[in-house]
């Protein structure tokens, strides 16, 4: 099981399921509990990647706090009934961050945390990139970049046609902004006045082969979306309170979509990975993985 590698103490550590009403607008967890959960999720990510020996640690660790804040605080969903029609939807457009999404879903109770060790293995539900037909809680497939915002628009339109109060959140990497389709979608979301749609840019500044500033400069991201007539909120993407504040502000928007530009650090929480493109799609050996777990859980520091 999770064993000694977990350094934090949360309600779930005694083996009891957490009594959280995931359907609620505000699940009532405090910042400290959410921070603990983020540690726990980061540990899950590292262990899952240790098991698969391949995958994407950097971009998983950069969006962990955003995912935790959404799933454990603001997203209205139901792990026992993943297809609940009135649920909010979280679309991970940057599908390579699958280990982060899987870990959060497992901690919510969509499937057993132990199953995370099957990541990328043959016959596993935990595909290298998410597959909604295989794993409960997955809304869209991942893999090719740049498609998620379009899918989010489609879902937001469907939700509005059905008169549901579901909100659609799309997490997009900043490297993903290289894809032209994102900008096609950026125009369309405004045309269709989708105030039930929130995009979150995981702006970690690093993509597969280097810094986004070198590979393909995307700045100024916030100004670009402002020019596209989005409501723009810029935050520290590792500050849980800021993330929640931005989500709440996006909920109040009327007549158009909101984008949260979340400034993050690729590989956040593991010093030898932070800001390093080398850990975009590489898993280190067992010793470094143990070091990563120790760092995340504050052991020996």
């Amino acid at each position: 099981m999770r064993g000694i590698l977990i350094g934090s103490a949360t309600a779930a550590d005694n083996g009891e399921p957490m009594a959280i009403d995931f359907r609620a607008d505000d699940k009532g967890l405090g910042i400290a509990e959410l921070k603990d959960m983020a540690k726990r999720v980061r540990s899950d990510i590292i262990r899952a990647l240790g098991s698969s020996k391949s995958g994407h640690p950097g971009g998983s660790l950069s969006c962990t706090d955003i995912l935790v804040a959404l799933y454990f605080s603001r997203l209205r969903h139901d792990p026992k009934n993943p297809k609940w029609p009135d649920r909010d939807r979280l679309l991970l457009s940057k599908g390579h961050a699958a280990p982060a999404l899987y870990s959060v879903l497992a901690e919510c109770g969509y499937f057993p945390v132990e199953e995370l060790s099957t990541l990328r293995r043959i016959s596993s539900r935990l595909q290298g990139h998410p597959d909604p037909n295989k794993l409960p809680g997955i809304e869209i497939p991942g893999g090719p970049e740049g498609i998620g915002l379009s899918e989010g628009i489609g879902m937001a339109l469907a939700s509005r046609l059905d008169g549901r109060k579901s909100r659609i959140y799309v997490i997009i990497g900043d490297g993903e902004l290289d894809e032209g389709e994102v900008w096609e979608a950026a125009m369309a979301a405004v045309k269709f006045k989708l105030d039930n749609l929130t995009a979150i840019i995981d702006k970690n500044g690093v993509q597969q082969e280097g810094k986004t500033a070198d590979i393909m400069p995307t700045n100024p991201v916030a100004k670009k979306f402002e020019a596209f007539n989005w409501n723009v909120i810029e935050i520290d993407g590792h500050d849980i309170a800021s993330i929640i504040g931005a989500i709440d502000k996006a909920r109040e928007a009327h007549g158009g979509p909101t984008i949260i530009v979340a400034n993050t650090i690729k590989g956040k929480g593991v010093d030898f990975m932070e800001g390093r493109y080398e850990y975009h799609g590489k898993v280190p050996g067992p010793e470094l993985l143990q070091d990563a777990l120790d760092q995340i859980n504050g052991v020996g520091k």
Binding site: P132, I140, I147, L149, S150, E151, I153, G154, L157, A185
Partner: peptide, 8 residues
């Protein structure tokens, strides 16, 4: 992509 989202 939008068509896919509507179908989802």
């Amino acid at each position: 992509g939008i068509a896919a989202g509507l179908a989802f």
